[in-house]
Amino acid sequence: MDPLPGEVWWKPALANVPAATSAGNGGPGLVLDDRLLAEPGGPGDRLPPDLRRLIVDRGALREHLAGQGLPTPRWARARTFEEASRQVIAGNRFPLAIKSARNGMEGQGVFRLEAFRELPKFIERLHGAAPDADLIIEDWIQVQATVEVTVGAAGNRLYAQKSLEKSLAATTAWRLFPVKPPPELIRGTDRILAALPGLGTAPGSLCRLTIGLAGKDCFLLALSGAANRLEYFPGWCEKAGVMPTVGEAAAPPATTVQGPGPTRWGRLQFLRRPSRQPPFPSALPPGCPAAVTRYFAAGRQAVALLSGPDPKALMQQATLLVRLLEEAGES
């Protein structure tokens, strides 16, 4: 079952973080869920109306990007299973992305459709979460890399690379930050930002672009106005040389605290277990890599922050951490 708006499974991890803002939505004017931005009289009122519409409505975003001449996957809007079936059969190509037109959080409401037989169950889940929302069916873009670009009200940027789990749901496996963007990503980001109306005009707001690099093109895969990233908060970013984006100690994105010596990186490793397995332990098992600087578990979901000067070493230590947690679950 999808969580209720604003209910992020890792939110309790912020409770004991020094200088964190009051729990709920990441501080004044910020939310942890884009669905809350659609509510009249809520935090979304701080945003320019046109930008707000693009954040909460994925179909409106696709139409806008195409109208601006930006790279956009082939896509179609559908309301019912019958309409979606006709679109899928007419296209006769896989894989596809099928998603709710209503924006969610953390890839919720986004599925990878690899065969027609999967369509009924995906539509059932999408309509169960948002019965009155349209469906978006589009080509699944095969990308060389997926990067999240967080932009603060002052225009400062924080770049993070992410990878998805090997599943039919668009679920994050890990994020690495801060990454140095290649020139083509900077140019592509500039073009996308120039096409978004009113960006950076709302005090205290932030906006996050999920960009897929495919050849020479930069595809805007998703747009968010929510502060639903652990690396924005105190205690989950400083070890990677990044100051908090939100909270009492907040600084604009991309403000660093890198000292002399090698650049440091942070890798957020997300872990999940099926219902047939026991929950994750509340504390790390013995022998965990020294690079693990923070860990939080909530039932069958967990996240660990690893930090160090070598991203390849962090990947290896994340693999070791996963193995140790698996062994702890079997004992």
Score class of each variant (00 low, 15 high):
residue 319 T to Q: 14
residue 86 R to T: 03
residue 93 R to Q: 12
residue 243 M to E: 10
residue 195 A to K: 00
residue 69 G to L: 03
residue 111 F to E: 12
residue 21 T to Q: 09
residue 316 Q to L: 13
residue 288 C to E: 08
residue 262 P to T: 09
residue 209 L to E: 05
residue 314 L to D: 02
residue 284 L to I: 03
residue 24 G to W: 05
residue 258 Q to I: 05
residue 70 L to E: 07
residue 321 L to Y: 14
residue 120 P to M: 09
residue 21 T to K: 09
residue 233 F to A: 11
residue 24 G to T: 06
residue 247 G to E: 14
residue 12 P to K: 03
residue 193 L to W: 09
residue 322 V to M: 07
residue 28 P to N: 14
residue 274 P to D: 15
residue 308 G to Y: 11
residue 288 C to I: 09
residue 158 L to N: 04
residue 185 L to N: 06
residue 54 L to C: 00
residue 241 G to R: 06
residue 12 P to Q: 14
residue 187 R to I: 08
residue 300 R to V: 07
residue 221 L to A: 13
residue 158 L to I: 09
residue 257 V to G: 12
residue 37 L to K: 07
residue 136 I to C: 02
residue 112 R to L: 14
residue 109 G to S: 04
residue 16 N to W: 14
residue 303 V to K: 05
residue 161 Q to N: 05
residue 155 G to A: 04
residue 214 A to D: 07
residue 142 Q to L: 10
residue 9 W to S: 12
residue 127 H to Q: 12
residue 39 E to P: 00
residue 249 A to V: 11
residue 229 R to P: 00
residue 271 L to E: 09
residue 12 P to Y: 14
residue 268 L to R: 05
residue 173 A to T: 03
residue 200 G to W: 04
residue 265 W to K: 00
residue 265 W to Q: 00
residue 38 A to H: 04
residue 85 S to N: 02
residue 174 W to R: 15
residue 62 R to K: 01
residue 12 P to D: 13
residue 319 T to L: 07
residue 322 V to N: 14
residue 105 M to I: 01
residue 33 D to M: 02
residue 36 L to T: 08
residue 97 A to Y: 15
residue 73 P to L: 04
residue 233 F to W: 15
residue 34 D to H: 04
residue 112 R to W: 12
residue 43 P to M: 12
residue 289 P to T: 05
residue 4 L to A: 10
residue 290 A to I: 07
residue 192 I to H: 10
residue 266 G to P: 11
residue 127 H to S: 06
residue 64 H to N: 04
residue 304 A to L: 08
residue 210 T to C: 08
residue 227 A to R: 00
residue 287 G to Y: 10
residue 98 I to D: 10
residue 167 S to L: 12
residue 22 S to E: 13
residue 62 R to E: 06
residue 94 F to T: 11
residue 57 D to N: 11
residue 58 R to Q: 06
residue 142 Q to Y: 07
residue 312 K to M: 09
residue 242 V to E: 12
residue 160 A to N: 07
residue 317 Q to S: 12
residue 157 R to G: 11
residue 220 L to T: 03
residue 311 P to M: 07
residue 129 A to T: 00
residue 272 R to F: 13
residue 197 P to G: 08
residue 209 L to F: 05
residue 255 T to W: 14
residue 237 C to I: 01
residue 157 R to L: 14
residue 330 E to G: 01
residue 66 A to S: 10
residue 22 S to W: 13
residue 290 A to L: 14
residue 157 R to S: 07
residue 53 R to A: 15
residue 24 G to S: 12
residue 166 K to V: 13
residue 25 N to Y: 06
residue 53 R to T: 04
residue 80 T to I: 07
